[in-house]
Design a protein around this nucleic acid. Structure first.
Lengths: 248, 248
DNA sequence: CGGAACATTGACGATAATCAAAGCGAGTGG
DNA sequence: CCACTCGCTTTGATTATCGTCAATGTTCCG
């Protein structure tokens, strides 16, 4: 039972063995999807909600002028499109960034499960809150940090979120984003991304080659980014630390 | 029963009279809060979740360098801090932007209500999805739109969200944000906000005076912003329109 | 009346965008 | 097996949007 989705939900709520194995059952049927394939595009039916068991995907919007903004990275364990209404809030499209394994849970199944185990419903609500927290932090990132800080923050965030569902994760991690993708995540241009990436490399903080990212100095990255994992890990935090901002 | 929170939840899910009146009961006890008061700051207890019955508030983060980014505007009917875990994802602080009337619902009461009426739980999950959609659109806004477009989009969004809980809303609406607040919403500087506001005024699109905003040309604003209300109103949309992007 | 918060204006600077071209690397097909 | 191509990365030169700094106006409120 090493299902990434279960691990994420366990972060979000207190689930017993019964709940977990029932959820696991719902993830039984899964399929493989290649990289750069649409998981969903505007106009498609969406009668179920997909869960990413492995691989990376992205939600994004395209503006009239053709600009793209990625609004969310979907990492292993992430789910999307909870809404009950078929014509939901889904203005966005989804594409895989790497080969993915995807489970598709039928809405009806999930609804029944929640009625049987209210704790699952609560975990899902909390999971939604965590998503909100990530989105908020992206708004902050794009709104108030410069290019280097944004990159550092993104790296810290993805590393942490990956480590939540893969405790063995060390310095090295998959990082399937191209520089164009990175630009569309961080609200910058590919050219600028390239230059700032080089800066991080030259400073010896990271190595990024053939979609593998090696973090050589996590401390410095967190320092640059002002990264604090609190928003991603509600119950893991030991004592809540007061701000006490002795800022650098 | 003109409670703004109920109106928002009715947007999000199918609630019957029973559910609605039970929810209404939970909002009974409410209090008035003046403008520019902290509703919540890091370190505070948060054993309940507040609901805004009237007035505006904002969630924000402060960075080490003192920069502030507002991550969410809380309009009438909005709730915050759903998380069940007391040490939740609450890295952010909340402040009122105008005098507010706030109801405080006890977590336990809400949990019991959801167990009795699963539809309420679903509505809350959907409401969380709508929050997600708003946050996504903010990421897009700050990431890929220039100053003028951002302002226009924010105006369209707030006007629409306000109209959802106040059907009588016309051209004119409350707009309690100072230019500093606006800057912190849009990821810009107050000086720049000022200049772009003047541009909107000179083009005859809006009038903004003493915290009242009058929209003289909503069409043009939407045009500038590339605004489409779909992401805010799931079930109201008549037929889902295909992209068919004959972009300007 | 006085003061504080907020709005406006101008001059200058910097981060990031744009444009364009060249290099690199991996997979494909001849 | 090699040439070719396509996607991706790198580099340089120039531009522009937006930020910074600083001063002056204005409105509101006790």
């Amino acid at each position: 039972m090493t299902n990434a989705f279960l691990l994420r939900l366990m972060e979000a709520g207190d689930l017993g063995d019964q709940e977990l194995s029932a959820l696991d059952d719902l993830c039984r049927s899964s399929r493989d999807v290649a990289a750069k394939k649409y998981l969903w595009r505007e106009g498609d039916e969406m009668a179920a909600f997909p869960v990413i068991l492995s691989g990376w995907a992205a939600r994004y919007q395209i503006l009239r002028n053709g600009a793209r903004q990625i609004t969310r990275l979907l990492l292993p364990g992430d789910a999307f499109y909870f809404e009950g209404s078929p014509d939901g809030f889904a203005v966005e499209e989804v594409i895989t960034l790497s080969p993915c394994r995807i489970a598709t849970i039928q809405r009806g199944d999930m609804r029944r499960l929640i009625e049987r185990f209210p704790a699952v419903g609560e975990a899902l609500r909390n999971y939604g809150c965590m998503e909100n927290a990530v989105l908020s932090s992206w708004v902050v990132n794009v709104g108030r940090r410069d290019a280097l800080e944004r990159m550092a923050h993104l790296i810290c965030e993805t590393h942490f979120r990956l480590s939540q569902v893969d405790p063995q994760l060390g310095q090295q991690m998959p990082f399937p984003l191209t520089q164009d993708d990175l630009a569309d995540v961080l609200g910058l241009t590919p050219v600028h991304i390239n230059r700032k990436l080089q800066q991080l490399r030259q400073d010896g903080l990271i190595v990024l080659r053939s979609k593998q990212l090696t973090i050589h100095d996590l401390r410095s990255l967190q320092q640059i980014a002002g990264f604090d994992s609190a928003y991603l890990a509600p119950r893991r935090q030991v004592p809540r630390q007061r701000p006490n901002a002795a800022a650098a």
